[in-house]
């Protein structure tokens, strides 16, 4: 125990969302205070030519800084990063972003699986992974890998999702830690991070 005394249990939040995602993300993020310490990295499926409108919408509705992730940018706490349209967003081991125009994965670019899988190389088991509403199965394989790596998985209760296939696909692919109705996810995340920080700082 002593070797991990000062390590935080969680160091990053990764979120995947597709159809209905903007509303769901707004609800989750607006529950978080501006001193939320972890970086939040989001892949929301969008049209390739859609520009940067998501970060503007979310930025207007939450207390945290919201921006599109830039190539080689270092990940900082208290910041929400959105994958740029038409690029895969990946994490490097030095906790910086890289982008790729490699073929779509699960018919998607950006793909949620690509973010989730590469997050493990940068954050190991210190990941909170959230799968929200969506009409395909992207994210399920990545979430399963994060689970196997020791990360914490939260899935939106499919009955509260605008499109339920994505949460259902994740529930089918892997055991998860928590299934929650949309309106509770933000508050639960906040509690989870606060609790784990206290726990790990003062065991």
């Amino acid at each position: 125990m002593s070797s991990v005394l000062h390590e935080k249990r969680f160091e990053v939040v990764v979120i995947g969302a597709s159809a209905g995602g903007i509303r769901a993300l707004t609800m989750v993020l607006s529950a978080l205070p501006e001193d939320f310490a972890l970086p939040i990295i989001i892949v929301q499926h969008v049209h390739p030519h859609s520009g940067g409108y998501i970060s503007h919408i979310l930025g207007a509705k939450c207390a945290l800084i919201v921006k599109q992730a830039d190539e080689k940018e270092s990940v900082l706490g208290g910041t929400v990063y959105i994958a740029p349209p038409n690029y895969h967003l990946m994490l490097e081991t030095d906790r910086s972003f890289s982008l790729s125009v490699a073929a779509p994965v699960n018919y998607s670019r950006p793909a949620i699986d690509v973010l989730f899988e590469t997050a493990i190389d940068a954050y190991y088991d210190k990941i909170v992974c959230i799968v929200l509403t969506g009409a395909n199965h992207d994210g399920s394989q990545g979430a399963a890998k994060i689970h196997r790596a020791g990360g914490y998985i939260i899935v939106q209760d499919p009955t509260t999702a605008e499109a339920d296939s994505m949460p259902r696909a994740t529930l089918a692919a892997t055991p998860v830690d928590k299934v929650l109705p949309l309106e509770q996810i933000g508050a639960y995340l906040l509690q989870l991070i606060n609790r784990s920080n206290q726990l790990w700082h003062f065991p």
């Binding site: 890289s98 899988e117 590469t118």
Partner: peptide, 9 residues
């Protein structure tokens, strides 16, 4: 090369 992409491939 940036490693994440190479590793995935």
């Amino acid at each position: 090369y940036a490693k994440a992409s190479v590793k995935r491939r």
